[in-house]
């Protein structure tokens, strides 16, 4: 047993808490849009949902530096040495930021950070996709075929997360109205529609995360490397 095994365990646990915790979020969301419940109950359900939802968010940010460490130890990624430390520091800072956004929800600071987070995610997506494609084309920087494919699949999950954020924006506005003005058909429709829009992206994350995990567990058997 060595450090690589510990990082493999962490990599599996990030997947476990990412996809597993999503189950509670998914079910609670269906209750939040149920107009039979009082606004107070729906607010608490949303709070519960938001708390549980932070776990997959942290895991998405944590799984990348863990994966990068595994790849560096295998000698198939150029993100090594000082660069790897930088990736870890950036991921830690991003996790703190995600926590702050959740913690300060409703404040101007949180809104500003949320916008910045979205820009970061788009930059992150570019940083994932471009080198993965050049690697598949044979120009590097990643060695092996499976690692760039895995990174592309992970990027798919990150993109779905952005999709959820965009499709779920009207939900927040409608929920705010529900809390101040009470239930109305317009508000209920907007919430249900927003949730329905987000569902394909949620399922997309699960599918991308599952294929990514499958590839990670079986790359030796599937690709021989």
């Amino acid at each position: 047993m060595d450090w690589q095994d510990i990082f493999k365990l962490l990599h599996v646990l990030t997947f476990v808490y990412w996809v597993g915790a999503d189950l509670g979020v998914f079910y609670a969301a269906r209750l939040v849009v149920n107009p039979k419940y009082s606004p107070e109950t729906r607010a608490t359900l949303l709070k519960t949902l938001a708390w549980i939802d932070m776990i997959p968010r942290y895991m998405l940010l944590l799984t990348f530096p863990v994966g990068a460490t595994l790849a560096a130890n295998l000698g198939i990624s150029p993100i090594d040495g000082v660069w790897l430390y930088l990736v870890w520091i950036a991921a830690a800072a991003w996790i703190v930021m995600a926590w702050q956004i959740h913690h300060r929800e409703g404040t101007d600071a949180a809104r500003r950070l949320t916008k910045f987070d979205l820009v970061l995610r788009l930059a992150f997506l570019a940083a994932l996709v471009i080198p993965a494609i050049t690697s598949l084309a044979g120009a590097g920087p990643y060695e092996t075929q499976w690692l760039p494919i895995k990174i592309l699949l992970f990027a798919g999950a990150v993109a779905c997360g952005v999709g959820i954020r965009v499709t779920f924006t009207p939900f927040g506005a409608a929920f705010g109205k529900l809390m101040t003005e009470g239930s109305s058909p317009a508000v209920e429709t907007q919430m249900s529609r927003s949730l329905a829009h987000a569902v394909p992206f949620v399922i997309g994350i699960w599918v991308f995360a599952a294929i990514t995990a499958f590839l990670g567990m079986n790359h030796e058997m599937l690709f021989g490397s």
């Binding site: 599996v12 646990l13 997947f15 476990v16 808490y17 990412w18 996809v19 597993g20 915790a21 999503d22 189950l23 509670g24 979020v25 549980i52 776990i55 599952a210 995990a213 499958f214 567990m217 079986n218």
Partner: peptide
């Protein structure tokens, strides 16, 4: 192997919501 890990996902990962 995949099923083995997915079972852990819905065991340990689901438990945090509980």
């Amino acid at each position: 192997i995949m099923i083995h890990v997915v079972l852990l996902v819905y065991w340990l990962g689901a438990d945090i919501s509980v």
